[in-house]
């Protein structure tokens, strides 16, 4: 390849990127909050994600977060690229029909240490959306619960639990850990309690009582 052809290819790429960036920026005026040097680079990443069938809203939000926090442009671009890659990994694990909130939660779970197999199991175990179960899984790991214990508990509840039950389950674990219970034991106990409540719901016999504080 000659120098001239290299230059031609580079110019064409830059042109395409510029047009793509301009198009993306035009589609989403919120990107106007980014500085002129960063905007087209972020737009290219967003366009690539869109072309790949990934949700773009999380990417826009990540860029806006950087703008609000005054992050340097290269850092914003890098953060958006990293999230796009995480979303891609999450979709590989969860399948092509995954909703954007599920993909976003899946990306966070993967980054927290959950394996793709756990995500796939969760997908199979639950008919409804798995965004909240994934978020609870991520949260438990953040609270010090070993990934396998957290995954086992969430998987056990995922099939029957409502999102609100899962959020309450997470709160119970958090509080018990603060009380001094080992994270694994707190998770198991809260999962057992949540499972009992869910069974009562299914039997139509749930008491009308406030949830655990």
């Amino acid at each position: 390849m000659t120098l001239r052809s290299l230059l031609r290819a580079a110019a064409a790429g830059a042109l395409a990127a510029t047009f793509g960036a301009t198009a993306a920026a035009a589609q989403d005026p919120r990107l106007g909050r980014l500085d002129p040097g960063t905007r087209p680079l972020v737009a290219v990443v967003i366009d690539s994600a869109r072309a790949a069938g990934l949700p773009t809203e999380p990417l826009v939000q990540r860029a806006l977060e950087g703008a609000t926090k005054g992050a340097p442009g290269p850092l914003i671009v890098s953060a958006v690229q990293r999230l796009a890659a995480d979303l891609g990994r999450a979709r590989e694990a969860l399948g092509p029909g995954t909703t954007p909130p599920e993909l976003e939660a899946g990306a966070a779970a993967l980054r927290a240490g959950a394996g793709p197999a756990v995500l796939a199991q969760l997908r199979r175990a639950r008919r409804q959306t798995i965004a909240v179960p994934l978020a609870v899984l991520t949260d438990l790991v953040a609270g010090g619960v070993p990934v396998d214990s957290a995954a086992a508990a969430v998987l056990a509840l995922a099939a029957r639990a409502r999102d609100a039950d899962l959020v309450e389950f997470r709160r119970s674990v958090e509080r018990d850990i603060a009380l001094g219970a080992p994270p694994t034991a707190a998770t198991a106990a809260a999962a057992a309690a949540a499972d009992a409540r869910i069974s009562q719901v299914n039997a139509g016999a749930r008491e009308n009582r406030p949830g655990r504080p």
């Binding site: 992050a71 850092l75 914003i76 909240v132 949260d139 953040a142 999102d163 959020v167």
Partner: peptide, 18 residues
């Protein structure tokens, strides 16, 4: 909230809405 790295050298709070 759950504190997590925000990719910008700081942290961000994460919460879940059921």
């Amino acid at each position: 909230t759950t504190r997590a790295p925000d990719d910008y050298g700081g942290d961000v709070g994460i919460f879940v809405v059921p």
